[in-house]
Computed example of a mutant assay.
Amino acid sequence: MKLVGIDVGKNSHHFCVMDKETGEFNVTPSSFPNNKEGFDFLINSLKPYSKKSILLGMEDTGHYHVALLKFLLSNGYTVALINPKTTDLTRKMEGGITKNDKLDTITICDVLDTPERKKQYRITKVDRFDLYEQRQLTRHHHNLKEELNVYCNRLQKSIDLVFP
């Protein structure tokens, strides 16, 4: 099995390919742009391996991973989403002080290499992103309601001070 660690960024992503059995790198950490050409570069780098023998892992970071995730899922790859706190904790537990994109790809591979019973990621099998988009809208609605409540309370406080 090949583990692919992808460190997601706003303008570019980094990835590496590690052999799960030997721990050796088949592809050393390298970068690709966050666009169609970059995504095609990643796919071409993965062509020597069968899709069933690859597990791609990336952090679930805001919205920067969504376009790449959609692209990989539409091309039939298995993708694992990882909480960024998990990779940070793994890096610290391994004694890593330095944080950079290339080292993060290796840390993501280490997270993917955890035993099945201690799995620290979730496999994404979403073919449609309706639920994802609904979740984002629900969160946005909730945040707006909280913000409105704060402003209503401030207004009420001002009114109470001016007109006791």
Rank of each mutant, 00 (worst) to 15 (best):
V4I: 11
G5F: 05
I6T: 08
D7L: 02
V8Y: 06
V8K: 03
K10L: 14
K10P: 04
K10W: 05
K10R: 14
S12I: 08
H13R: 07
H13Q: 05
H14N: 12
H14E: 13
C16K: 00
V17T: 02
V17W: 00
M18S: 04
M18H: 00
D19A: 07
G23A: 03
N26H: 15
P29Y: 06
N35K: 01
G38I: 06
F39W: 04
D40T: 14
F41V: 05
I43A: 02
L46H: 00
K47F: 10
P48V: 06
P48H: 04
K51D: 00
K51A: 08
G62N: 14
H63G: 09
Y64E: 08
A67P: 03
L69R: 01
K70F: 07
K70Q: 15
F71D: 02
L72A: 03
N75E: 04
T78Y: 07
A80D: 00
I82R: 04
L89P: 00
R91S: 12
G95R: 04
T98V: 14
T98D: 09
D101R: 01
L103F: 07
I106V: 15
T107Q: 07
T107D: 09
C109D: 08
V111R: 05
L112S: 05
L112Y: 01
D113I: 05
P115K: 10
K118A: 14
K118Y: 15
K119R: 15
Y121Q: 06
I123G: 06
T124M: 15
K125N: 10
R128T: 14
R128I: 13
R128Y: 10
Y132C: 00
Y132S: 11
E133P: 03
Q134T: 09
R135P: 01
Q136T: 12
L137R: 09
R139V: 06
H141I: 13
H141N: 08
N143Q: 14
L144W: 01
K145M: 14
L148H: 03
L148E: 10
N149Y: 10
V150N: 02
N153V: 06
R154P: 04
L155D: 01
Q156C: 05
K157Y: 09
K157N: 15
D160W: 00
L161Q: 13
F163V: 14
